[in-house]
Design a protein around this nucleic acid. Structure first.
Lengths: 339, 339
DNA sequence: TGAAAATGCTAAAACGATTTAGCTAAAAAA
DNA sequence: TTTTTTAGCTAAATCGTTTTAGCATTTTCA
């Protein structure tokens, strides 16, 4: 294993100065009037021995690390997993690496992560944020680093944000159930004040209000273990026997919800109509198939990355803050209509 | 936003040398005989102003980055997603951050990632490796950095490895089907020479040989898009109508396989018995439920991290190479027996 | 009392790049 | 011819740590 070579070593071997080598490697030969002869000599040699600048030293000097922090709720969630996969791919193509973490919707943990990222001098942040970190994020923004929110916004934080239209999508889902003849439609969600959850809830409530139909709300704690989620949903459905349809506000609630429904022996959609926010394989293959609101994952990732790269490459110019709202597609399957 | 403060600044304000501050912050006050008085003064001040050493500078000097590379096949796969989630959590508790990437089983891409990680001076590597990167990994090992393989081994590479007993697990799955009376058992796998796939295949082949039963093998290309996977499985099952059971070598093949089976109108387990390697929600909720070989995800993650931290903390002592083979649990559900 | 040992601290080098400011020689302008 | 400009390159400072080697004092011991 050959010893790691430095720019000084390269310079010595070619009998030029490190400065010259640095200029050439950073594509500034023209600007710095390096002769073609020397430029080619350096490039050739560097290529030959496979010299790569030490990124730590470079980062220390320049203050740039080519690293982006990506914070999601949980990387093992199908939605966030796919988002992460897409972002990773695109970021990599632009020379950025992802430092990721799963927040578990925990504010304190998230703050710790943010500190860690700051220490590591990441260049930018992509965050599906829990509540309560507005202050920390504002400080980062003030320090001049791009912060991009997705999946949810923070009311008191002005920064670029990529969302789907949670309100409209949920409203449409409820309408769909109503059109199919369901009258007692429940909404099962998390006990969360996060914007995406709140908007979905509003979409549900206002649509039912419009149609003068009763509301049945069940809020599940995010920190419940799986069995407990199932148990609570089961108890809720049993207690409110009149419920004839359910909208699940997020995918994993539906997964546990289906277990509860099976335990109760309810038949979908005869006894219970179902719509769920977020699509995944399960919902397509379940019998009957589950109607889902599918977020445009690839497009979300695209927008995130292009917005961010834009910020990173034109740090001054791009002052204006953008909020992009994408449409989610409702994939109507068997679970939401009484065939 | 206050200006970032350096160790020199801290030293000046307290009228001591940066050396002293550094010693204290690195917990070497005793060893370096710093007086309690000065130690406390420094610690108090540092706490007050919230000074954190610049990790880039530190890494540049020490050669340690407290960063671990994690390379999986795809972060959006349920198995790898959960593994990643667990590893991330545990690594973080020990002060390490994860730099991750999805290899997509692509050798060239993986090599590029490895180069990138080297540039970034990660301290260690955790890899579910594609074929053909033995040379690159050997070079890393020779350079003294820990490399830990999981999910699969590379024949020509001697390094620590965490596996499950793919051969035995698959053999047991096939036995289960045989005991249930299935006679024409197919094996649907990837066209991959990776060890885990090969071992699963061997488990299948030898068990059938032992029982003198016919073999039906279908190998799907990893790079096929979803529809094509489904189409190929459908065609295969149609062509070989005598097949009465299928073992899927990995979870996502089964997901697409189920779609194919539905298209063909086959009834599980009456027309077709099913066992799949890797468990996920879908298999528990599918009707009928799908018998699965569940890898012990948490334990895999635990072993990976503890082995790695051990290496990182005792770089010299731990010369010996370990291969840990864990047992996978077969979760028998409806799909594998003719009730 | 004087030498040796222990105590408490620090100066300066090193890690490996980037970048500022500037030097020398040749060409152009005056 | 002298001055100015341009071309082509580089010395040295800098980023912010860690660590080696060592300098004064003070204490211990013979």
């Amino acid at each position: 294993m050959e010893k790691k070579i430095s720019i000084i070593e390269v310079a010595k071997r070619l009998d030029v100065s490190p400065t010259t080598v640095s200029f050439i490697l950073n594509g500034r030969s023209k600007e710095k009037r390096i002769s073609d002869e020397i430029r080619d000599k350096v490039l050739k040699f560097v290529e030959e021995i496979g010299y790569k600048p030490n990124s730590l030293a470079r980062s220390l000097r320049t203050g740039k690390t080519n690293t982006i922090a990506l914070m999601v709720e949980s990387i093992s969630d199908p939605f966030f997993g796919h988002i992460a996969r897409n972002i990773e791919e695109k970021a990599y193509k632009s020379g950025y690496k992802i430092l990721y973490s799963s927040t578990g919707n925990n504010t304190e943990k998230t703050k710790e992560f943010l500190k860690m990222y700051e220490e590591r001098h990441v260049d930018a942040y992509i965050i599906a944020a829990p509540e309560g970190i507005e202050g920390e994020l504002q400080a980062i923004i003030d320090s001049g680093k791009p912060v991009l929110l997705f999946d949810r916004y923070l009311k008191d934080l002005k920064t670029d944000t990529i969302l789907v239209d949670n309100y409209q999508s949920t409203a449409k889902a409820v309408e769909e159930l109503i059109q199919s003849g369901f009258k007692n439609i429940a909404f099962i969600t998390l006990d969360s004040l996060q914007s995406q959850m709140n908007d979905r809830l509003l979409g549900y409530e206002e649509t039912l209000k419009k149609h003068k139909l009763p509301q049945y709300l069940k809020e599940i704690s995010y920190d419940f273990p799986p069995e407990k989620v199932t148990a609570h949903i089961e108890a809720f459905l049993q207690r409110r026997g009149e419920i004839d349809a359910v909208v699940f506000a997020t995918n994993y609630l539906c997964v546990y919800g289906l277990k509860a429904i099976e335990k109760l022996g309810l038949i979908i959609p005869k006894d219970l109509g179902i719509v769920v926010f977020d699509d995944q394989d399960l919902f397509e293959l379940y019998k009957p198939q589950i109607t889902a609101i599918a977020q445009p994952i690839e497009e979300i990732a695209n927008q995130i990355i292009s917005l961010l790269l834009n910020k990173l490459n034109n740090p001054v110019k791009t002052k204006k803050i953008q909020t992009i709202i994408l449409n989610a597609e409702m994939i109507i399957r068997g679970s939401s209509s009484r065939a």
